[in-house]
Amino acid sequence: MDETTISGVAALCFLADDSGFQGNLVTEDQKHFGLVGKATESCCHEYHTCCFEKPPVFYDITLTAPGSGDWSDVVLRGVMRTGGDNCSLSSQEVTFDTDELLVNQSAEAHIKKYFSTKWLGRSCYVCIGQLLATVLRENHTDKIK
């Protein structure tokens, strides 16, 4: 297994109920990745409930590289989300902190430009910031590196 680190600017479009998100990640060398997060009941992290105003949400995040025939989707499980709308994501494999939060008309304009129209009119909000993901992949030729 090879360990690959992917980092860049991510825009994450969250559903208002925090049940999931869609996102994109652009690396410094202009590689593009898709992100899909689905809330999950199970988590593999221990945390102290007294440390949070409201309990964190956990996501399983699928990372894809559209157009890369040798890249298989990678699922990052049990990524903890804290901080309300101005969120942070963290696990052993992922870190993300919001630098810019888009809501209402700003979010709708961003969604219209960068995401599927199915996300419009659903009271979504967009978090933009630096994302770092470390993934384990099977040994094979990798054009992503």
Rank of each mutant, 00 (worst) to 15 (best):
F33W: 01
D18N: 13
G23L: 03
K54E: 15
T64N: 05
A65T: 06
E53F: 11
A65I: 07
E53Q: 11
F21H: 06
P55M: 13
L35Y: 01
C44Q: 12
L63Q: 00
H45C: 09
A39C: 09
E41W: 03
E46P: 00
I61A: 10
G23I: 04
Y59Q: 03
T64Q: 05
C13M: 08
E28M: 05
V57S: 07
K31R: 15
F14P: 01
V57L: 08
G23T: 08
K54N: 09
C51I: 00
P55T: 08
D29N: 15
P66H: 02
C43R: 09
L25G: 00
G23R: 00
E53Y: 13
C13H: 05
E46D: 14
Y47A: 07
D29F: 00
E28Q: 12
P56E: 10
H32M: 12
I61Q: 05
E46G: 10
L35S: 01
C50K: 10
Q22F: 10
H32V: 12
T49F: 04
T27A: 05
L15A: 15
Y47C: 06
H48C: 09
C50Q: 06
N24H: 14
L63V: 09
V57P: 04
H45V: 13
N24R: 13
G23P: 01
C43P: 00
T62A: 15
E28C: 02
C44K: 07
T27V: 08
P66Y: 07
T49D: 08
G34F: 01
T40Y: 04
D60E: 13
T40N: 08
F58Y: 11
A39L: 08
A16K: 12
F33L: 00
F33C: 03
F33K: 01
K38M: 10
